[in-house]
């Protein structure tokens, strides 16, 4: 695969004053709760959401992050196997991807790993990938151990969260940690961060506890520094 120059992918969404647009693709099997996750995230402002009129297939949500406003444009994809080959048309030009599996279905995890592999191989180098194990509310039926998925995510430098769209667990954290990649950096540093640091996991949260890796050791000034829990107003995150 030939990578396009990073600059063309990154430039369009750097603009001060206006929110930074981030195209985010949702991948994962049907019925793992891909779009429930997103609906949960945008839910608070769902009714005001005027520029999205086609249900959960396309949603947009602004998200205030310290000095920058990010506008996620969330593209849903059909999860059925028969539509698999169409995915590249969706993740092409995407700045981030959320790959969702169901913690109670091991097969959906296997499938998610396939997506990750494909993204690492074929998507833009700068893409930020988050692996998400959904349906944490069904802990008693868990088939995918947290440790296994965490190890996989770490070794592939993915953002990783276990969530429950139903009970709203770790959903906002998920989007916040993706948003961090697009925040608090000057354009020049920003591009560097995207190209060099995109695959460094920023945060990992599982059922047991939440922890963050704030400073990946081998990248210094380009990486967003501290992650604080400072709440900002008028924001979905």
């Amino acid at each position: 695969m030939t990578a396009e120059p990073t600059i063309t992918r990154v430039t369009p969404f750097i603009s001060y004053g206006k929110p930074t647009k981030v195209k985010l693709v949702l991948l994962g099997e049907s019925a793992v709760g891909k779009s429930s996750l997103v609906l949960r995230f945008v839910h608070k402002q769902y009714n005001e959401n005027r520029d999205a009129t086609i249900g959960a297939a396309f949603l947009s949500q602004k998200c205030q992050l310290e000095d920058r406003v990010i506008k996620f444009e969330i593209w849903d994809t059909a999860g059925q196997e028969r539509f698999h080959s169409l995915a590249p048309m969706y993740y092409r030009n995407a700045q981030s991807a959320i790959v969702v599996y169901d913690i109670t279905q091991y097969a959906s995890y296997e499938r998610a790993k396939q997506w990750v592999k494909e993204l690492l191989k074929q998507a833009a180098d700068s893409i930020v990938i988050a692996l998400v194990g959904n349906k944490l509310d069904l802990e008693e039926n868990r088939q995918v151990p947290s440790e296994e998925a965490t190890t996989y995510a770490l070794s592939n430098q993915l953002i990783f969260h276990e969530t429950s769209a139903k009970d709203a667990i770790h959903v906002d954290e998920l989007f916040k940690s993706i948003g961090k990649y697009y925040s608090r950096v000057s354009p020049k540093h920003f591009i560097l961060t995207i190209t060099l640091g995109a695959r460094i996991p920023l945060s990992i949260s599982t059922a047991e506890d939440t922890f963050s890796i704030n400073k990946p050791s081998h990248i210094d000034l380009n990486t967003p520094t501290t992650i604080t829990s400072k709440k900002t107003k008028n924001c979905a995150c």
Binding site: S35, V38, L39, I54, G55, A56, A57, T77, A78
Partner: peptide, 16 residues
């Protein structure tokens, strides 16, 4: 996709 909200009715929406 459905997201249940305690107070109101189910919010369901067409997805891809």
């Amino acid at each position: 996709s459905t997201v249940e909200e305690p107070q109101r009715t189910e919010l369901s929406s067409v997805n891809a």
